[in-house]
């Protein structure tokens, strides 16, 4: 893991990508800082970080688009995967290198709240600022893992970047979408059945066993229908509940309200771990194709 980590980190500073990432982050944070602290005279730094969350959508893909796709395109993955190191080490090494670069930016940005406090004698809630920073870092780390997963699915960096931005925007809109969905139990059931169909299709694509897929499908469908007849009320507004629990930005906003909730951190870390696991699976699965 160490070798891959160091190599990745060096790569960011060897080609323009690392500088572009750091530059873009700092410019936008700087503009927001100027806007909030200087223009609106709002001392609290969490305004800046909150505004910065919309910037993350476009800047994290710069960091992650090449992270896996470049290796498969240049066939350098052959060197990594035939070296006596674990696949998990490759994935984690790359992930931590991106995280470290992200944290570098966060560290540099600390100058801004410090300026407010020490130069302008601004009155700032330490707690809120710290909470905002934790939320910002959590969102960044989670998005890096999602971007990395998408990058592992393609050899084309541009495709990876566009899809990643698309997914992030969708996640941003998720908060709005679930409030307008019908809360009828039949609608929930229908959507879940469709989702089950998609999952079964993916299972069949990867194992090519019609019987096994059929059994899994039949069992899931029966379980679903039985649950529906025993407790139909549990399906009322189920979709909204599921989607709201997945709403990344909702939790991000929650963390800015100043209430430090441990559950949110667990959520972000779990999502990160999940996507790292998926990335690992994609890399491993390539050899079985």
């Amino acid at each position: 893991m160490r070798a891959v980590f160091l190599k990745e980190l060096r790569t960011y500073f060897k080609n323009p990508l690392g500088y572009v990432f750091i530059g873009m982050m700092l410019i936008v944070l700087g503009i927001y800082y100027a806007l909030y602290a200087m223009y609106y005279q709002a001392a609290d730094y969490y305004h800046v970080l909150n505004a910065g969350s919309s910037l993350i959508i476009f800047v994290i893909p710069v960091l992650t688009m090449r992270i896996m796709s470049e290796e498969s395109k240049n066939k350098t993955d052959q060197m990594l995967l035939t070296a006596p190191i674990k696949t998990s080490g490759i994935v984690l090494g790359k992930f931590f290198a991106a995280v470290v670069l992200f944290l570098m930016v966060v560290l540099i940005s600390v100058i801004q709240p410090l300026t407010t406090v020490f130069v302008f004698d601004g009155d700032m809630s330490m707690q809120m600022t710290l909470g905002a920073y934790i939320a910002f870092i959590m969102l960044g780390i989670t998005f890096i893992s999602i971007g990395m997963f998408i990058s592992s699915l393609t050899e084309n960096q541009l495709v990876a970047a566009v899809v990643t931005i698309g997914v992030f925007i969708l996640l941003n809109l998720l908060d709005g979408i679930y409030t307008i969905l019908p809360s009828s139990r039949y609608f929930s059931l229908a959507v879940i059945v469709v989702a089950l169909g998609i999952v079964l299709f993916l299972i069949y694509r990867s194992i090519h066993e019609l019987v096994v897929t059929g059994i899994i499908g039949a069992v899931s469908l029966i379980a679903l229908v039985v649950t529906f007849f025993i407790t139909p009320e549990s399906f009322d507004g189920l979709l909204g509940t599921i989607m709201s629990s997945l709403a990344v930005f909702q939790r991000y906003a929650d963390m800015f309200s100043g209430v430090f909730e441990f559950g949110h951190i667990v959520f972000f870390l779990s999502v990160t771990a999940f996507f790292l696991f998926l990335t690992y699976q994609v890399v491993e699965k390539k050899r079985w194709n």
Binding site: R2, A3, V4, L6, K7, R10, T11, K14, N15, N74, K75, T76, D77, Q78, M79, L80, T82, A83, P84, I85
Partner: peptide
């Protein structure tokens, strides 16, 4: 095993020395 694939797996951003050093770390 030492492996030279059909297309040499080279990191074009590195110098030869850096590349071989990275390979030493990997191995």
């Amino acid at each position: 095993i030492g492996y030279l694939p059909e297309i040499p797996p080279l990191y074009v951003d590195m110098t030869v020395e850096e590349y071989l050093a990275f390979d030493c770390d990997l191995k």
